[in-house]
Amino acid sequence: MVEVEVHEHDIFPNVFLVKTRGQEKLATRNMVPGTSVYGEELVQHNDIEYRIWDPYRSKLAAAIKKGLHELPIKQGERILYLGAASGTTVSHVSDIAGNTGEVYAVEFSQRSMRDLIEKVCRNRSNVRPILADARVPAEYRLLVRIVDSVYSDVAQPNQANLFSDNADVYLKEKGRAIIVIKSRSIDVTQRPTDIFKKEIKILENCGFHVSEVIRLEPFDKDHAMITLGR
């Protein structure tokens, strides 16, 4: 048996640091013990199972590794997750939110949604899959309640506006949000830094206060994670 040490993250409850073989890795408490969602490593410690959270696979983990100060996703809260894809990050968000939380996972691609349902939603009752176009928030207003935070990771040229439209409908007053900007899906010809500045400007014009901007190198190229609120 390999020696394992587990600590809770200094500032983020429900996020853990697992130390094995001298390496420190991020992890979340596995809500469905015994199952690995996307092939991630499972670690046991004091009868609790943890899922290793790979920063190369999940941008949220990358942001935490790069020193994120504020994580709007908390236990027992409702989260609107735009661009759920196959559910890699969603599964960890679901771990953090726990049984009393709700994760509304919006994804447009039926192929990704198939994986999301099979791998994540079947086992996790706190994840609600929504096959819809995030550009039209009204499409799913019958399914989503007002949320405490929004996590937006859609590779769209107009992602700042898309996020703001969703926040207008679903984000509670004083709600917090995280948005991932992929500069290459906005314009391949411009410098990432310029694009991030421009996107932040758009968000500020929509009435948001940007509190943190984190570049995700070396985990993801030309990506930035922005935390913000009204």
Binding site: Q110, R122, R128, P129, I130
Partner: peptide, 16 residues
């Protein structure tokens, strides 16, 4: 919550 969660899942499955 359990019920609405199941309905949402069923809607997504049906859509697929």
């Amino acid at each position: 919550q359990d019920f609405t969660s199941k309905v949402t899942l069923a809607i997504a499955e049906e859509a697929i």
